[in-house]
Each structure stands twice: as C-alpha cells, then as structure tokens.
Amino acid sequence: MNTQKDNLIERVLKNIEEKHLTPRPRYEFILKNYFFWTLGALAVAFGALAFSATLFEIQNVDWRLSVATHSSFFSFFLSAAPFVWIITLVLFILIGYINVRRTNHGYRYPLSIIAIGAVLTSIALGTALYAIGFGGRIDEAIGDHPPFYRPILATQREWWLAPEKGLLGGEIIKAAADLSSFSVKDFSGHVWNVDGSDLRGPDLATVARGGIARIVGVPVSATSTLFHACFVFPWEMRGDFRNAPPPRPLAAVASSTQAATTRSDACKNIRPYQQLHDIDD
C-alpha cells in the first residue's frame, strides 16, 4: 500500500512537473463567478422588460370590447394574451436559474427559491419600468422584430381597421358643433365622415373630447368613406406616453337634447348591441 501511495504521489507530482502545471489564478474563478451572477442578473432584467411589456399588453387590451372585435372570448384570449412575453419571462427566469446554479454556491439554492426570487424581482422591476412608460416602448421596439409576434398596438389597430365589419378606430380630427357628424382619420390614414346622429351621452362626450377613439357602427356603403356610428369608446393608452396624442377638445359636451335616448334600427342590428349598450352605459 505504501508503495502504491508513493507511486500515486510521485506520478501526480511528476505529471505536474513535466507538464509545467500550475494552479489557475484566483481571479479567473472570481471572474467566472461574477460572470454567471451577471448573466443571472441580466436574465432577470430581461425578464423585467418582458413583464413590463406583459403589463402593457394586459392594460391596453380592452377586454370589455372583445364582444365587438371577436366571435368568442376564447378567440379574443388567444389573440390578445401576451403569450410571447410570458414565455420570454419564463425563459429568462430559467436562464437566470441555470447561471445562478453555476456560481460558487448556486447549487445550494433550490429552483423554487431562485424562480420565486427571479419572478418577484422581475415583477417589481417590470412594474417600475411599466410605470415610467417602458412597457409600450418595449412592446413596440422588440415586438416589431420577431416574425412570430406583433405588438399589441399594431394588433389592436388591425382589429379596429375593419369598417366593413363595423369597426373603425382612429383619431377624431374634427367635429360639427352639435356633434351630429365628425371626421376620423383611421390607422391607415384614410379620413372618414362619420354620422353621429345615433350617439348618446357617453359617446358624444368621447367625440367632444377628440383624440383616438374606437367606433362601432355600420358602413354606409362598401365603397364610400361614410360611416354610421352607434357607439364611440375612448382609446386611452396606459403605460405609454409616446404614441398616444392627448385628446383635443373639439366641441362642448353635447346637451341632453343632442343625446338620443334610443338608437335607430340600423344600430340595433349590429351583433353585440346589447353588450355594447351595457358597456356604454
């Protein structure tokens, strides 16, 4: 046994000698440790960006109006839920976990602790980023690039750029003094002349305020740019201060005589009339 021991000691030391082996410098290990902590922290930071975009999407999808834009809540959920951002968040948390695991004592922390820590940090940072207006910028800036993803604003503009389906979104650029008609510049730049004779108090207040709005109504004809409005809903952007122009006061709020108490048959024939009527109230 002693001979074996001596042999191993001699063999190891001889190997060290012959191959000129030296202990790797301490700074390499320190740098490596910092490197993995940094990657872990970066992953959480990206998770925070993803969360701020998720918040932005959730805040800016008007779930109430899904009755107008989609045939069922399920189809609305599939097209509106921020799956890409949620997957991105989960992915970055996993990347964070893998990197933290590779730090000196990282293996001591269970996945659950790291995941909960990373999620909470991402949520806290993401909420702060959203609050200072980053959510929308990230959604637009990053979201524009991947081929499989469209930012929520672009998606919503698409939903509300369907006058043939009775959905018109855009900026109210001018209104008659009595609000019986107004002009809307849609998201593709076309200007529509909108008949507001069927609108009621809340709709008229929205028209009077100006700014970006969503209109549910009936196209007068397939070829003209005349639109009969039944409901007007404001489009208030939350968590983004860049794209949404502030509403401009176009007219005084309609008087009670201007606010029709009942809508015409043209409006009553639109499919989710009752639900929209309830939302409008």
Partner: peptide, 15 residues
C-alpha cells in the same frame, strides 16, 4: 491521478 491533478490546477477555486 486525474482527480488530484484537477484538484491541483483548481486549488484557487477551493472555497
């Protein structure tokens, strides 16, 4: 032998 050589090379990583 590999264990001890590896240990020697990484001695500075011993915490």
């Amino acid at each position: 032998q590999n264990v001890f050589i590896k240990a020697y090379k990484n001695l500075n990583s011993f915490d």
